[in-house]
């Protein structure tokens, strides 16, 4: 059974008297022990989706439809005290800015121990400090650096400490929102390796949110491609990179420099991702799509299933592969 099951999820913001739908009818599942990549550009809704999964939507945002089942329990509609029993415990979080969210005047080990003390009330301070030390060692921070202050850490070490904090509640799922984006490439590679090792050692389930197709290929089992608040394609990494179906997925892959394709062979997608204040009718990709047809300008495409693992929402395939929803 899926550990996390998102179906027909819709999230809206109210801004200046208008409703902005930032996540529109998105469905996907995450099986226990797998890493799912959520890929999208600006305005795709990927960060809003992540916030809604953690019950962290800002005041003007709300889940207005669909469901989020986490380990069989419905998450939509939880109030803040109920969220606090889930978030930081069975659901760990790592952010891009984890490096900046630490308290500058407290020792790192104390900051990692704090949530352990909050969550496991029968634990003594000394036990919590031991556990924090274990976690910091697990993420590769040598013991002599545990008592240091965050400013004494490099960006890579702070992100490691952020991962240790995310693991402190023994989470079943880790939600990682652009966790390596701000890091230099050598450090990034090592943090990805760390996440891969932890995933294996702890049988972690990870939802990895990123715009970086290289990072997704490196780490993920499955990929969900978002465009303008909707899921346009889903499949295994091999499905998505070797046989992409949706014209957006194809164009996105062609826009990334690729050593095995040759220099100067990448092509951008004309135009820019649409504003969610005023998304195009029909398929939202149609104004930028090289294969757009008349129907694409007015009718939203249904999802077509190609194999047991791959689906895409595009009018090109509606006849050959039978709709699915």
């Amino acid at each position: 059974m899926a550990l996390l099951s998102i179906s027909s999820l819709t999230v809206e913001y109210q801004r200046a008297g208008r409703t902005i739908r930032a996540v529109d009818d998105v469905s996907f599942e995450i099986e226990t022990g797998t890493v799912v990549g959520l890929v999208g550009e600006s305005g795709s809704g990927k960060s809003t989706l992540a916030l809604s999964l953690m019950g962290l939507l800002p005041r003007n945002g709300a889940v207005t439809g669909g469901s989020i089942l986490f380990d069989g329990a419905e998450m939509t509609g939880l109030d803040e005290p109920e969220w606090r029993t889930v978030r930081g415990r069975r659901m760990g979080m790592v952010f891009q800015g984890a490096m900046n969210s630490m308290n500058p005047v407290r020792r790192v080990i104390d900051q990692v121990a704090e949530p352990i003390l909050t969550h496991e009330t029968d634990m003594t301070k000394a036990d919590a400090a031991d556990r924090a030390g274990e976690l910091l060692s697990l993420v590769g921070i040598p013991a002599d650096r545990h008592p240091a202050y965050p400013y004494e850490y490099s960006g890579g070490m702070r992100q490691r400490a952020g991962i240790a904090m995310a693991l402190s509640g023994r989470p079943a799922v880790l939600i990682a929102d652009e966790p390596v984006t701000a890091l230099d490439v050598i450090v990034q590679a090592r943090i990805l390796q760390l996440l891969e090792d932890l995933q294996e050692a702890l049988d972690l389930t990870i939802l990895f949110i990123t715009h970086d197709l290289g990072v997704v290929a490196r780490l993920c089992d499955r990929v969900v491609v978002l465009y303008a608040a909707r899921s346009v394609e889903e499949g295994t990494v091999e499905d998505i990179y070797d046989r992409p179906k949706h014209p957006y997925t194809r164009a996105l892959l062609e826009s990334v420099p690729n050593f095995s394709r040759g220099r100067g062979k990448s092509h951008g997608i004309p135009g820019a991702p649409p504003s969610l204040m005023d998304p195009p009718a029909g398929c939202r990709f149609h104004p930028r799509c090289p294969r757009a047809m008349d129907i694409c300008t007015s009718v939203s495409p249904a999802r077509s299933r190609f194999t047991a693992t791959q689906t895409a929402a595009c009018h090109l395939y509606e006849e050959e592969a039978g709709g699915d929803g």
Binding site: Q188, G214, A217, V237, N258
Partner: peptide, 11 residues
């Protein structure tokens, strides 16, 4: 260390 957009590339 460059992550390449190819799931078959070795780590």
């Amino acid at each position: 260390a460059i992550p390449v957009p190819d799931p078959h590339a070795a780590a």
